[in-house]
């Protein structure tokens, strides 16, 4: 558990538009009262005997006073503080109460056990990710030797604006209303006449050229007209493959 000693003056937070700097947080890491005691003893280069614990009481209490300890864990600090004070009192006013004796030896005992896990945690910390065993598909996305981007991607507001513009460009135009009056296209008869007129002066026509620019409906009617003429043997159709150029030859 962290004790966050948050120095407000070091926090810079600009919530202006989309630009902001992450706050700088000063962290003093004491996971709990045991951790703090072990650390204090280390600093003083002493063991955690009863006599030494007494000497650590002041710095322990000072730490609690000076730091805002997380409410979730403050209780455990106070419990230890009371035991430390008990040790101090006992040395000034010697008494034989076994209850107190137990409480003090219990704290010492707990500290000695805690130290074992504290030490092993450091060993495991060094091993963490040093030589990891990897799961299947670890490199599945071509991650060999490629470092993952961490933190905020480097994106400018221009890029975002560009992406938005790109997106806007891709929005399809609004559909044409389907229920309105449309000009009626030329009839089959009209188109047949048109083709016959053209074939009077030309020997052949490219179908695609004759319908370029006409409406879909007119294109369909023209196609039917051409088929009709072919059926009546007035023209011969030639096409190399599906959707390729269709040539209309006058017979």
């Amino acid at each position: 558990m962290y004790l966050f000693a948050l120095d407000v003056s070091t926090i810079t937070w600009y919530a202006l538009g989309m630009q902001f700097a992450l706050p700088e947080v000063k962290i003093e890491q004491y996971e709990g009262p045991y951790d703090l005691l072990v650390e204090l003893a280390k600093k003083e280069q002493i063991s955690l005997s009863e006599i030494n614990l007494k000497n650590l009481t002041d710095s322990f209490l000072q730490y609690i006073k000076e730091h805002e300890i997380d409410t979730e864990i403050i209780g455990s600090f106070l419990v230890v503080a009371s035991t430390l004070l008990l040790i101090k009192v006992r040395q000034m006013v010697p008494s034989q109460k076994t209850e107190e004796e137990e409480e003090i030896s219990d704290l010492q005992y707990r500290l000695s056990q805690y130290e074992k896990f504290r030490a092993i945690a450091e060993v495991l910390h060094a091993r963490w990710n040093a030589k990891p065993l990897l799961p299947a598909h670890y490199f599945a996305e071509g991650e060999f030797q490629e470092r993952a981007e961490t933190g905020m991607p480097n994106i400018t507001s221009e890029q975002i604006a560009g992406a938005l513009q790109h997106l806007i460009n891709r929005i399809p135009p609004a559909p044409q209303p389907s229920a309105h009056l449309v000009q009626r296209g030329r009839s089959m008869k009209d188109i047949l006449a048109l083709f016959q007129d053209r074939l009077a002066t030309a020997k052949k026509l490219i179908f695609q050229d004759t319908v370029r620019g006409s409406t879909r409906q007119e294109q369909a009617v023209s196609f039917l007209a051409v088929l009709e003429m072919a059926r009546k043997n007035s023209v011969r159709l030639e096409q190399d493959g599906a959707f390729s150029t269709l040539t209309v030859h006058k017979i």
Partner: peptide, 8 residues
């Protein structure tokens, strides 16, 4: 063992 709340 840790002497402190470990919920978080």
């Amino acid at each position: 063992i840790r002497g402190v709340d470990s919920r978080r």
